[in-house]
Design a binder for these strands. Structure first.
Length: 261
DNA sequence: ATGTCCACTAGGAGTGGA
């Protein structure tokens, strides 16, 4: 089974791109973020025709998360919960579904802007709330996956410039603390688990030719419980889908692909 | 190079967010 996380930066703007990905890479479950669509505006028909069911928690203009499930692996996936209790003013950023015998959570962590900005404190609080949510609601002894755009660089290997970014947004101890809590709660970073020494980024700024200069960050993460870790065959980041395809503009994030037995 | 892309409001280009 192939499980993916991908911040698409507008599902409306990226629809053809995403359908191309489903066709080309044949994933079974895709956690998506930054839909930028209200649920009533989601293009369900296009995904149904592509053989997928989409479970979404969206809002107008910003944020929005979802899980796409291939109908042949589970014709009746279910939404278990939406939203992060106590943090609703931050927008639609969390959805948990039950699909193909797995608990799958798609998360879009607030960006935070800069460490001096009030949004940074709210981001750190949201991350703490996420760890609380995992502790209360997700089962470390089950088949559990938590994937999404964390807007946090887990370690020095995950940034193109560890020296220049010391203490900078995405790189602070306060943001990394909640990721350590996830580990303590039994969830492991599957990419790093399978590729201990590999530098591979999942996000590059649209500006300044960052992609071609290899100035990226690994901020899109897939966490799995112990039983998932034991089933993982390979984890990779699909740089090809950060490139223009047939003149179409990509998201600023690349899909992270996890293959499990 | 604060260099791009997206949604929204508006009915053209500016604003806010990332």
């Amino acid at each position: 089974m192939r499980i993916v996380t991908w911040n698409v930066n507008s599902m409306a703007a990226r629809l053809d791109f995403v359908l191309d990905f489903l066709q080309t890479r044949s994933p079974d479950i895709v956690c998506v973020q930054e839909l930028k669509l209200p649920d009533e505006g989601f293009p369900h028909l296009a995904f149904e025709q592509a053989g997928f069911r989409a479970l979404t928690y969206g809002q107008a203009q910003w944020n929005g998360v979802g899980v796409l499930v291939r109908k042949s692996v589970d014709p009746e996936p279910l939404i278990v919960s939406t939203g992060l209790p106590g943090h609703e003013p931050m927008g639609s950023r969390l959805i948990t579904v039950k699909a193909a015998g797995l608990s799958v959570t798609s998360a879009y962590v607030p960006n935070g802007k800069t460490v001096a900005h009030p949004d940074y404190k709210a981001k750190v609080a949201w991350l703490g709330g996420l760890a609380d949510f995992v502790e209360k609601n997700l089962d470390p002894n089950g088949h559990t996956i938590l994937a999404g755009d964390f807007n946090v660089v887990p370690g020095d290997l995950d940034t193109w410039d560890p020296v220049g970014h010391v203490g900078a947004i995405f790189h602070t101890d306060a943001e990394r603390g909640p990721l350590e809590r996830l580990r303590a709660l039994g969830l492991q970073d599957l990419f790093r688990e399978k590729n201990p020494d590999l530098q591979s980024f999942s996000w590059w700024d649209y500006r300044a030719g960052a992609f071609h200069k290899k100035q990226g960050l690994r901020i899109d993460l897939v966490y799995g419980s112990k039983s998932v870790v034991s089933r993982v065959r390979e984890v990779s980041i699909d740089r090809d889908f950060r490139k223009k395809r047939e003149g179409r503009i990509p998201s600023d994030h690349a899909p992270v692909i996890v293959d499990i037995d």
